[in-house]
Design a protein around this nucleic acid. Structure first.
Length: 228
DNA sequence: CGTTGGATTGGCT
DNA sequence: GCCAATCCAACGC
């Protein structure tokens, strides 16, 4: 069995992990099935201003992005207004899951990231994947999906297809039934503004495999250009 | 305690 | 293109 991506993989800044997760294999073993998706779309979320001073010394981050995060933090992040019962896992060690309910009906899967020493509440949202194993089990959970490209092409669709719910919140994803396998990093990555985030459009923290047929964002927000 | 709205989706006009 | 679904965290009083 291939080994799971280790803790050190996740102990980096969210934008780095988000980009590096493209092409990796998300695996969930549940209800007698092994389901796997090759990740094609992610988003990075940082924390409030002032909690990530090490960003100042990063020379591989676009200057505009770095300045914005240092000065104002990431207002779109669940950790922007401090620790709560829901988001407290983001304040813990990297490599754990954060699953939350959105719009009363869809679950979103995140992975906690960040240099452990900094206690910075970061996460990466898993937004879309290409089904590669357990496709029948995924189809059974998403009977309205017509084609393989519809099965996991959105954060709510991905979790629904793979049987991931809040029961999988706060799990150690470096071992156990929910984990990543190494896969292969993708060559062509596009960075865009995050989907459904208002007020931080200048932060290009969504990462998608260029030209992937399995990505979400088939609908762009009204009045804005399509992001691919 | 009451209100508001969200890191979305699918169905209908 | 428009909008309802459906829960509950977050916040104001």
């Amino acid at each position: 069995m291939p080994r799971a991506l280790p803790r050190r993989f996740f102990a980096r800044d969210a934008d780095i992990v988000a980009r590096d997760l493209l092409g990796r294999i998300l695996v969930h073993e549940a209800e007698g099935a092994r389901m796997a998706c090759r990740i094609v779309e992610t988003e990075a979320y940082f924390g409030p201003a002032g909690c990530n001073p090490h960003l100042a010394t990063r020379d591989d981050m676009p200057a505009r992005l770095r300045a914005r995060l240092l000065r104002e933090g990431d207002p779109a992040s669940h950790s922007y207004r401090g620790v709560t019962k829901r988001n407290e896992v983001m304040y813990g060690p990297p490599g754990r899951s954060y699953v939350y309910l959105i719009y009363g009906m869809h679950e979103c899967l995140n992975v906690v990231t960040g240099p452990a020493r900094d206690h910075e509440p970061q996460a990466v949202l898993l937004r879309a994947g290409e089904p590669v194993e357990g496709i029948d089990a995924m189809r059974a959970r998403r009977p309205t999906a017509r084609r393989p490209t519809d099965l996991a092409s959105g954060p709510g669709r991905l979790t629904r297809a793979m049987g991931i719910t809040r029961a999988q919140d706060r799990l150690d994803i470096t071992r156990g039934a929910l984990r990543f396998e190494e896969g292969r990093p993708v060559a062509r990555v596009e960075a865009t503004p995050r989907i459904g985030v208002v007020g931080a459009e200048d932060l290009r923290l969504r990462f998608v495999e260029k030209d992937s047929l399995f990505a979400s964002a088939l609908r762009a927000p009204a009045g804005s250009p399509r992001a691919r």
